[in-house]
Design a protein around this nucleic acid. Structure first.
Lengths: 238, 238
DNA sequence: CATTCGACAAGACAGCATGTCTTGCGAAGT
DNA sequence: ACTTCGCAAGACATGCTGTCTTGTCGAATG
C-alpha cells in the first residue's frame, strides 16, 4: 500500500462547528479558503518576510480577529495552510506517477514527479521548511509528516529495487533508503535550482543521475540531457 | 585642543573604531567576543527559538543597548556572528585536509572534513541557514559567501578529478560540480543526521559513497562502514 | 414576520520584540 | 586633573501576537 492517506477530509477537527444550516457553512468555508489563499499569496509575494497575521488578514479582506477565530493562532493558520497545501499538491500525484511495474521507471518517474511537485510551489515549500526549523511549534508537525511520507515512499522504492535485483550489490536496502531520502529532499532540489541556477528539467536529470548511480547496479544515466546543449555554463546565480 | 578625531576607519565596516589606546581596545574586543559567544550559547541552547537580542544581552551580561552600540542592529549581530563562526570553524581546516595529490583522496577527505566541520556546530549552522531563508537581510550575505566558498571548492575538485581522468566519462565538469555541491551541502548532512538518525561517521560514509559513485569512474565504495555492523535497522526517529 | 443565532468586523488592551536616543558613571588616557 | 571612551540603565516609539468585548447583518427557524 502506498503512503498518502487520502481520506475525505471533509470536516477536520478545525474550527468548523456543527451545522444543520447550509449557506452559512458554505460561507464560512469560503472565508476559510480565502484566508488560506491569502497565506499562499503572501508567501509567494514575499517568501522572505515573517508573514504577519495582519498582512494575511488585509490581503484576504477579513478582520484579523477572524483569523484567530477560525484558526486559533498564527501557528494554527500556518499548520492549516501546510496541511491544505500537502493535501492539494502533495504526494498524491507522485504516487500516481509511480504505478509502473519496473522499479527503475518507478525511481525515475518518482524523482521527476516529486521534483515538479516541489518546484511548482517552491517559494512556499521553502518558507515552510525554513519555518519548520525556526519555529517547529507551527508547521513542524505537518512538515514532519511530509518527510515521513517521503521517507516511507523511498523505503518502499528501495525494497522494490532490491526485490528486482536492481540494487547495487554493495548497498543494503537501508542504505539505499538513506541515499534516496537525501537525493529526493526538497533541499537538494532547491540547492540546484535556487543555489546553482539550474532549470527544473536539468535539475531533475542531475538528481536522477545521482540516485541511479548511487543505488542501482550498472546505473548509466547521463547527467545532462542528451539532445540539448549542456547544462548552462553560467556561474551560479542566487 | 587637538583632538585628533579619526574619521578614517575604512578598515572593516565593523563596529571597531580606531585606537591609540590599548586597554580600552582590549576591553571592547572582549565584550564584543562575549556577546558573540552568548549568541552561540543561545543558538545551541535553543536552536528553535527566534533569538531575542534581550536574551543575548542577559546571557552575555551586558546591556541591550550595548549590543546595538557595538553591532548596530540585530541583523548586524547575526551577521558578525556568522562571519566569526565561518572564520573560526570554516573552510580553513577543510582546505588543509585537502592538500593531497590524489584527487580521489581530496574528495574523500574533503567530504569528511566538511561534514565534521558542519556537525561540530550543527545547531548553529542549521539556525543560520534557516535564517538566511527567512530573513536574508541579516545572515544572508555571509551565508551566501559560505555557499560560494563551498561551490568554488567543489568546482576546483571537479576540475582536478577531470584532469586526473578520474571523472566519469558521462559527466562534464560542470555537472560534477553541481553534483558535488548538492552532496556536500549542509542540508544533505543534516538530513542524514537529524532527519534519519544516523551517526556522523555513518553519514560521512554515505555521502562519500554518493559522491564517488556519482562523479568518479569506477567508484566502488561501500555505503556502510565494513568492519562494523550495518547501519542501524531502526526506523528514522524524531 | 419576528426572533434567534451564527459569522464576522472593529477595536481596545496586554505583552513582548526591535530600534533609537538620552543620561550618567567609572575607568583609561593625556 | 580633566577629558574621553565604553558601557549601563532606561524611557519611548513602533509593530506584532494573542485575548476579549461589543456591534452588525443576514440566514435559519417557528
Amino acid at each position: 500500500m502506498d503512503t498518502m492517506s487520502s481520506e475525505m477530509c471533509e470536516d477536520v477537527r478545525m474550527a468548523t462547528r456543527k451545522y444543520e444550516q447550509r449557506v452559512r457553512a458554505e460561507s464560512a468555508e469560503e472565508t476559510r479558503r480565502g484566508i488560506l489563499e491569502a497565506v499562499g499569496h503572501c508567501l509567494r509575494d514575499a517568501p522572505n518576510e515573517p508573514l504577519s497575521v495582519d498582512r494575511v488578514a488585509r490581503l484576504a479582506g477579513v478582520a484579523r480577529s477572524t483569523i484567530y477565530l477560525v484558526f486559533g493562532s498564527r501557528s494554527g493558520l500556518l499548520e492549516a495552510f501546510a496541511e491544505d497545501l500537502w493535501a492539494r499538491t502533495g504526494l498524491g500525484d507522485v504516487s500516481a506517477a509511480v504505478a509502473s511495474d519496473d522499479p527503475l521507471t518507478h525511481l525515475r518517474d518518482g524523482i521527476a514527479a516529486a521534483s515538479r511537485m516541489f518546484a511548482a510551489e517552491r517559494d512556499v515549500y521553502r518558507a515552510l521548511f525554513s519555518m519548520a526549523h525556526v519555529d517547529p511549534a507551527s508547521v513542524g508537525v505537518t512538515v514532519q509528516r511530509m518527510e515521513d511520507d517521503r521517507a516511507g515512499g523511498m523505503a518502499y522504492l528501495a525494497q522494490r529495487l532490491a526485490d528486482a535485483g536492481a540494487l547495487r550489490t554493495d548497498t543494503s536496502v537501508v542504505d539505499a533508503t538513506h541515499i534516496l531520502a537525501v537525493v529526493t529532499s526538497f533541499e537538494s532540489l532547491d540547492q540546484l535550482i535556487a543555489g546553482r541556477g539550474m532549470s527544473l528539467d536539468d535539475a531533475i536529470v542531475v538528481l536522477t543521475a545521482i540516485a541511479e548511480r548511487s543505488v542501482c547496479e550498472g546505473g548509466r544515466t547521463r547527467a545532462s540531457a542528451p539532445p540539448r546543449r549542456r547544462a548552462a555554463t553560467s556561474p551560479p546565480r542566487s
